[in-house]
Amino acid sequence: MNSIYLEMDGVLDQLEAALLEERPLSLVRVGDGENIVMSQETVWTTEQVLQERWAIKANLGQKGLRLPNMQLRDEVAASLQRASIVGVLPRGDNTIKAPDYLKRPLTDMLFAHYGISPPLTCHACVNRELAQNPRFWQMLAGRRVLLVTRETEALRATLEREPYQLNIVTALPFDSYDQMQDTLEWIQTNQHTFDVALFSCGVNAVVLAERTAALAGKVAIDFGKANNIILKGRAN
C-alpha cells in the first residue's frame, strides 16, 4: 500500500477542511468484519467464511447483515476503492479483539485481490479516538448532523446534551443491510438538510459513508463502535 498514513491530527485536518470548503469526504474503516465480508469466494471459500465466529454471529442477527452476501462484498470493495480516507489496522495491532489472521494480513490479501490502494489511510480505530477528542466535537458544533444507527433514541439524546451539544437534524434507524437502498435514497433526496453524517451500523457503514459523500457531496464518517464509547464509556 503506497498510501499516506495520517495520525489523528492529520485526520482532523482533512475533516475540518472538507467541512469548511463544503466538499465531499468519506472516512471508512476496515476491521475483521469488513475482511470477512470481502473474503467470500475471493481469497476464501464461502464454507471457510461461514465457520468464522463473526460470521456465525452475523447469521444470528447480531451484525446487521447475513452471509453469504456477494452483493455487499462487491459494494464494500467498491466503496473502499473510492473512499477518501481508509482506516486499516497496523500490523500486529491489538486494539480489536480478533485473531491476527482476520486483521491486517487478510486486509493486505484483499486489497491486493481487489486492487484497492487508498490515497490516505489512518488507524482503523480512529472512530474511538474521534469520540474522545474535543477538537472533533468542536468541529461539529453548529453543523447539521445526520445520525444513522440502530440506537437512534439513546445516541441522539446523549449527543444533543452536554458536553456534545450537537444539532442532530435527523436520526435514521438502521438495523440491517436490507435497509441500504432506502437509506441511500433518503440521503440523496434530503441532502440539503444536513452537513455531516455519522454512521454506526457495522460493515454497512463503509458503503453508506462512501456513497453519502459521493451522492450527497457531504462529509460522511463510519463511526463504528464510537456510539458505545459515547453511551457506555467503552467500545465493546
Rank of each mutant, 00 (worst) to 15 (best):
E22Y: 03
Q188Y: 07
A112S: 11
R73V: 05
D108N: 10
E160R: 15
N69A: 02
L67G: 01
I116M: 08
L208M: 15
A157T: 14
C122A: 13
V126P: 03
R29A: 03
D9Y: 00
L72D: 03
G224E: 07
M38Y: 09
A131T: 09
A213P: 01
A131Q: 13
C125V: 14
L198S: 08
P68R: 06
G87P: 00
V37M: 02
P99A: 14
E7D: 11
S79P: 08
V126W: 04
A220F: 01
E75V: 06
T42D: 09
T189R: 15
E160C: 15
V207I: 05
S3L: 06
E151D: 15
A112Q: 09
R91C: 07
V43D: 08
A209W: 02
W44F: 12
W137S: 08
T170G: 00
V196N: 09
E151K: 11
Q14F: 07
E129T: 13
A124H: 06
R150D: 00
R91E: 15
L67K: 00
M70R: 07
Q48C: 04
I116G: 05
Q188G: 14
N167D: 12
L120Q: 10
D9P: 04
E151M: 04
A216Q: 05
F194L: 04
D32Q: 09
V76W: 02
R135Q: 14
E162R: 14
L20V: 12
L215D: 13
D13G: 00
E185P: 01
L198R: 09
P119S: 12
F194Q: 07
H113V: 05
D32F: 11
T212S: 00
T170M: 10
S84L: 01
L130V: 08
E75F: 06
R66A: 10
L89C: 09
N228W: 06
L184V: 09
N133T: 15
I221H: 01
T183K: 03
D175W: 15
V148C: 14
N59C: 04
W186T: 12
V76K: 00
H113Y: 15
G224F: 13
N35S: 14
V169Q: 10
R144N: 12
M70G: 11
R144L: 02
W54H: 13
D9M: 05
E22W: 02
L110W: 04
A124T: 07
Y177M: 04
L80P: 03
L27K: 01
K57I: 02
T45H: 08
T170R: 09
